[in-house]
């Protein structure tokens, strides 16, 4: 256990010993690498962001875009090769959507950088359902527990995340059709942090811990603050005046790892933390090549 108090004392003591602070040469060797991000799903066209890293010590660039890269996606399932074209600010696009269950390989090469690679498969998510929900009271804090059952078949890896939106009934639109991703429903989509930009995965998703997932079921415990702000005293009256929409996302393992990594990075997000290397599944570079498949459902 870290002894913060003790270390404070000791540092203070050391300073008392006429300590000296001076800048030293880091002698750090630096070689810029490609930073590539692409999040693909059946609901969006494939796009890739290509940037590069910068040195910690020394001058940093004003922009990080790599505009002369060759970006290729290879659909391993059907043997199709897809070239992506630069649009603006390091963004490369094509007009193809990813297909559930297909495996994809990403290759990016650019002058002055080592070529990078990665591969993933797009998860299948057929549907999900609520089968129980309740309000749990712990001292002054209430939380909504929603038990979710997922109907999916995607190999042996089962990585899920979820998200929630709570709106009062007066302002919320009608419930969306169950089991269909509301890509056309801007209002519903706006209730969540969008996954649709296709580059950096959203950090608002809550990854489902593997030990919480049994037989495709898990319990989503919904933000205490939402319930505490409500004046409703029972689940029935709360649901009468509020519409709760849950998003369940089947994610690739890389996405899942990224969510945990982001969670850790944000909890240690002050300048005082030991830098931990970010999660990456890009060989010879950094970033993530991830995939997801999402569904919405309202209570």
């Amino acid at each position: 256990m870290i002894r913060y108090a003790n270390i404070l004392i000791f540092i203070s003591l050391i300073l008392a010993f006429l300590s000296c602070v001076k800048e030293i040469d880091s002698n750090a060797e630096f070689e810029s690498k490609l930073y590539v991000n692409s999040i693909i799903s059946p609901d969006t066209t494939i796009s890739v962001s290509v940037l590069h890293t910068a040195p910690v010590f020394g001058d940093r660039p004003t922009e990080y875009f790599v505009e002369e890269a060759e970006v290729t996606i290879y659909d391993r399932t059907i043997g199709e090769r897809i070239e992506l074209f630069h649009t603006s600010e390091g963004i490369y696009k094509c007009g193809v959507n990813a297909k559930p269950g297909h495996s994809y390989e990403l290759q990016v090469s650019a002058p002055g950088f080592e070529s990078v690679y990665s591969a993933i498969a797009v998860p299948i998510l057929d549907n999900f359902d609520f089968f129980n929900f309740s309000i749990e009271q712990d001292e002054d804090i209430a939380s909504l527990h929603v038990e979710v059952e997922i109907d999916a078949s995607f190999g042996t890896d089962k990585f899920y995340a979820w998200d929630v939106s709570v709106k009062t009934r007066e302002t919320s639109p009608e419930p969306v059709e169950e089991g269909v991703a509301p890509t056309a429903d801007v209002a519903i989509a706006d209730e969540f942090t969008s996954l649709k930009h296709g580059f950096t995965p959203t950090r608002s998703l809550v990854p489902v811990e593997q030990y919480d997932l049994a037989d495709g079921k898990f319990t989503a415990i919904i933000n205490n603050a939402i319930l505490n702000d409500s004046e409703e005293s029972s689940i029935e009256s709360f649901l009468e005046s509020n519409k709760i929409t849950i998003r369940v996302v089947a994610v690739s393992k890389s996405y899942y790892e990224y969510l945990f990594d982001s969670k850790n990075a944000e909890s240690n997000s002050s300048s005082i933390t030991v830098p931990e290397d970010p999660y990456s599944n890009i060989i010879n570079g950094y970033g993530i090549f991830a995939s997801y498949n999402e569904r919405y459902k309202s209570l």
Partner: peptide
């Protein structure tokens, strides 16, 4: 010692 930084993306 960290020697490399990722481009800023709004996060930490």
């Amino acid at each position: 010692l960290p020697t490399e930084t990722l481009p800023p993306d709004g996060g930490p």
